[in-house]
């Protein structure tokens, strides 16, 4: 039972996930009992009191004070217990320890951006140390999103114009999926990210700003491919020619791209760089047939990374 059940819930990867699961299990137990009582007696009555001949004798019970008292008080007491237990677990989920390490989160259509105290910024990938409480201070750049980490059993809306918070303490190293749980438009279901829980020493290296915690692929193209996922380009750009929110990268290299004012620009190193750092807001910079929704990546993508992305896009030419 316990294990069959554990399969239905996501892995227990944070400090409170276990508490959450216990309460959940309790609720399932209570529900099963009530379900069996109600549906069981319904079916039992159905069989026992099925009409055998028309006009057969029926009972005339319309009241039973004892019974009615019981089915009012027992549920009332039970829901009060559930409420209190639920509140205790909730307090654990929201009250971050003083010592928690703060990371800023910005949600925007359709990617997650993380800012650390050392000035670093990552996109789509949140790097956190294991066994240390981390608090996320979140806001949105456009519409409402919701930061959802199933493995940690936490979620909170990310609202424009205000800060919301969640905190957690990851149990061990590993990777966990971040979802956006509040509908936010076209690529809502692609607004995913990863939490990467690293060891304390890796965390310290990351903090000092030396060396990315992710080992870098040997070839520039492969690295570009990795960045394409990590930086969230995949939410809007495909690599197989299918038009998404933005143009597909397939085959654009070396092409004369038509802008919305009718002018043409050659897709080369400079064009790609400009597209990434200053995505089209004016008509002569905006690819024809697309809305001006690409966020700017200026300052979020290092020089070497730009090169890798360019190599990656170049490699996709037909």
């Amino acid at each position: 039972m316990e294990t069959a059940f554990a399969q239905m819930l996501p892995p227990v990867a944070s400090d409170v996930a276990g508490n959450w699961d216990t309460l959940f299990l309790f609720l399932v137990g209570v529900s099963v009992v009530f379900f069996v009582i109600v549906v069981g007696s319904m079916l039992w009555f159905l069989i026992k009191y099925r009409e055998k001949e028309p006009g057969q004798k029926v009972g005339n019970i319309v009241h039973n004070d004892k019974l009615e008292f019981l089915w009012i008080t027992i549920p009332t007491i039970l829901v009060m217990i559930i409420f209190a237990w639920g509140w205790i677990v909730y307090k654990r989920m929201v009250d971050a320890p003083e010592s928690a390490y703060d990371i800023k989160v910005i949600g925007k259509q359709w990617l997650w951006q993380f800012q650390y105290d050392n000035g670093k910024t990552t996109i789509g990938e949140l790097i956190v140390p294991e066994k240390i409480p981390v608090r996320l201070i979140m806001t949105s750049d456009d519409v409402i999103h919701s930061f959802f980490l199933p493995d940690f059993r936490i979620k909170n809306d990310v609202v424009p114009g205000m800060y919301t918070k969640v905190w957690f303490q990851a149990n061990e190293q590993g990777e966990h999926t971040i979802f956006c749980a509040e509908y936010c438009g076209n690529a809502h279901s692609k607004m995913m990210g990863t939490v990467k829980v690293v060891s304390l020493s890796e965390w310290e290296t990351f903090q000092k700003g030396k060396g990315a915690p992710k080992e870098r692929p040997a070839s520039l193209v492969e690295w570009g491919q990795q960045l394409y996922t990590d930086k969230g380009c995949f939410a809007c750009h495909s690599v197989d020619g299918v038009k998404g929110i933005g143009p597909s990268f397939k085959g654009i290299w070396g092409k004369q791209e038509e802008m919305s004012d009718g002018s043409h620009i050659l897709v080369d190193e400079n064009y790609v760089r400009e597209s990434i750092e200053y995505p089209g807001t004016t008509k002569d910079k905006l690819v024809k047939g697309f809305p001006p929704v690409m966020p700017t990546f200026k300052g979020l993508i290092a020089e070497e990374e730009l090169n890798a992305l360019i190599a990656f896009i170049k490699n996709l030419k037909e």
Binding site: W20, L23, F24, L27, V30, S31, F34, F35, V79, I82, F83, W85, G86, W87, V89, Y90, R92, M93, S146, F148, P150, R153, I154, K155, N156, A181, E182
Partner: peptide
């Protein structure tokens, strides 16, 4: 109704809401 009690429980709701 029973699953409604799950969702009324604030901590349980955090994980389940919007799913």
């Amino acid at each position: 109704g029973l699953t409604g009690v799950f969702l009324a429980t604030v901590s349980i709701n955090v994980h389940l809401t919007d799913t």
